[in-house]
Simulated scan of single mutants.
Amino acid sequence: MKILVTGAGGQLGTVLTTSLKEKYGKNAVIASDIVKIDGYEGIFELLDATDEASLTKIVAAHNVTEIYHLAAILSANGEKNPIQTWDVNLKSLFNVLQVSVNQKIEKVFFPSSIAVYGPTAPKIDTKQDAYLDPTTVYGISKAAGEHWAQYYFLRYGLDVRSIRYPGVVGYQSLPGGGTTDYAVDIYHKAINNEDFTCYLREDACLPMIYIEDAIRATLEIMEAPKSQIKVRTSYNLAGVSFTPKEITASILKWYPDFKVVYTPDFRQNIADSWPASINDNPARKDWNWKPNYDLEAMTKEMITQLQKQE
């Protein structure tokens, strides 16, 4: 097994690459990104995933058998340059899918997002087959990507697997330009005894997931027998839903003097178009998904781990 990870320097990629090396061995994983990852230990390749020739060269040179394609521009940053976001997100995915067919890759992982949902979808307990009408270019690119993933499975038999991540909360890296990233930054401000300015309303409820659950879900869907993967667009994935007010309350148990000010900006409009809670019954049924972390457990782990870094 030889695994290529694109976007390995991002919030999810950093932790996933480490987990893959721990599971399959350091020499089985090729990390790649558009810039060098400082201090990275293991096999690393500079790669712009929008360059098909470069991707092909790396896949062939390392005899890659699986690709985890994480390279993308996220929701909030994506709205600053919509055309670039569309080009990067879709061109890199097309390259991964086509190179995988040409090079006979065994499995591909493509991360989707709750951003594929829009105002038409029910806000509460949003189901797997709810209508997709995304209002951000990031969400549009992910919705399109889901259908291309399914197309390559149906047309070429390419084993593409995908999950729709909620907001991912982790201590291993700083926020990367997503609408849900306030739920990472808020912990950093708390342990540094700084006030926090939140760009969402205090009652803006969004689906979230702790990084350990997100990584475990990714490994579990990729390890599941092919016959168990019934959804070939992307599986809903639920962790825990909460508001800025609720996450603040959980932090106040650790830092009673912590102060939060709410000044909603354009990211509130994005949040308003997304679900408040997700129904992930197909993932639970097909490959036995179940989250381990609720809000209190997540806060305890985030604060404990960040304190160690001080």
Results as ranks from 00 to 15, higher is better:
residue 221 I to R: 00
residue 163 I to N: 02
residue 214 A to K: 03
residue 206 L to I: 14
residue 232 R to G: 00
residue 175 P to S: 01
residue 210 Y to V: 06
residue 184 V to Q: 13
residue 182 Y to R: 00
residue 185 D to A: 15
residue 209 I to V: 12
residue 213 D to P: 15
residue 160 V to E: 03
residue 180 T to Q: 06
residue 217 A to E: 01
residue 207 P to G: 09
residue 201 R to V: 02
residue 183 A to D: 04
residue 202 E to C: 04
residue 179 T to Y: 12
residue 228 Q to A: 04
residue 163 I to S: 09
residue 213 D to I: 05
residue 176 G to Y: 07
residue 229 I to W: 03
residue 174 L to G: 02
residue 187 Y to G: 09
residue 238 A to T: 02
residue 159 D to A: 13
residue 212 E to H: 11
residue 239 G to F: 03
residue 185 D to T: 00
residue 154 L to A: 14
residue 202 E to N: 13
residue 166 P to V: 09
residue 196 F to T: 05
residue 204 A to Y: 09
residue 237 L to R: 08
residue 172 Q to F: 11
residue 182 Y to P: 04
residue 197 T to M: 06
residue 183 A to S: 15
residue 153 F to D: 15
residue 181 D to H: 06
residue 186 I to Y: 01
residue 172 Q to L: 15
residue 161 R to S: 01
residue 197 T to R: 10
residue 217 A to F: 03
residue 169 V to L: 10
residue 234 S to Y: 01
residue 200 L to N: 04
residue 180 T to Y: 13
residue 239 G to P: 04
residue 194 E to Y: 11
residue 162 S to Q: 12
residue 155 R to T: 10
residue 234 S to D: 01
residue 231 V to N: 14
residue 231 V to S: 01
residue 196 F to A: 10
residue 237 L to E: 01
residue 176 G to Q: 14
residue 168 V to E: 08
residue 171 Y to V: 00
residue 168 V to N: 02
residue 225 P to C: 02
residue 196 F to D: 03
residue 235 Y to Q: 05
residue 235 Y to W: 05
residue 156 Y to T: 03
residue 201 R to H: 10
residue 157 G to H: 06
residue 226 K to R: 11
residue 181 D to Y: 02
residue 175 P to E: 08
residue 170 G to S: 10
residue 191 I to W: 14
residue 186 I to G: 08
residue 212 E to R: 13
residue 231 V to I: 14
residue 182 Y to I: 13
residue 197 T to I: 05
residue 156 Y to S: 13
residue 171 Y to P: 07
residue 183 A to I: 09
residue 214 A to N: 01
residue 173 S to R: 12
residue 157 G to C: 12
residue 210 Y to L: 05
residue 168 V to P: 03
residue 203 D to T: 13
residue 176 G to T: 14
residue 191 I to Q: 05
residue 185 D to P: 02
residue 189 K to E: 06
residue 228 Q to S: 13
residue 211 I to N: 02
residue 193 N to C: 08
residue 218 T to G: 08
residue 166 P to G: 08
residue 204 A to D: 09
residue 190 A to C: 11
residue 192 N to T: 10
residue 228 Q to N: 14
residue 187 Y to C: 11
residue 217 A to W: 11
residue 161 R to G: 05
residue 193 N to M: 06
residue 216 R to Y: 05
residue 221 I to N: 02
residue 219 L to I: 10
residue 235 Y to V: 01
residue 208 M to V: 03
residue 221 I to Q: 05
residue 207 P to W: 08
residue 213 D to E: 00
residue 153 F to W: 15
residue 234 S to R: 08
residue 179 T to V: 15
residue 210 Y to N: 07
residue 188 H to C: 04
residue 163 I to Y: 00
residue 233 T to A: 10
residue 212 E to V: 06
residue 162 S to E: 13
residue 155 R to S: 10
residue 223 E to I: 07
residue 158 L to P: 15
residue 237 L to P: 02
residue 194 E to A: 06
residue 195 D to S: 14
residue 171 Y to R: 11
residue 208 M to W: 09
residue 163 I to Q: 14
residue 209 I to R: 03
residue 154 L to E: 15
residue 173 S to F: 07
residue 180 T to P: 09
residue 227 S to R: 15
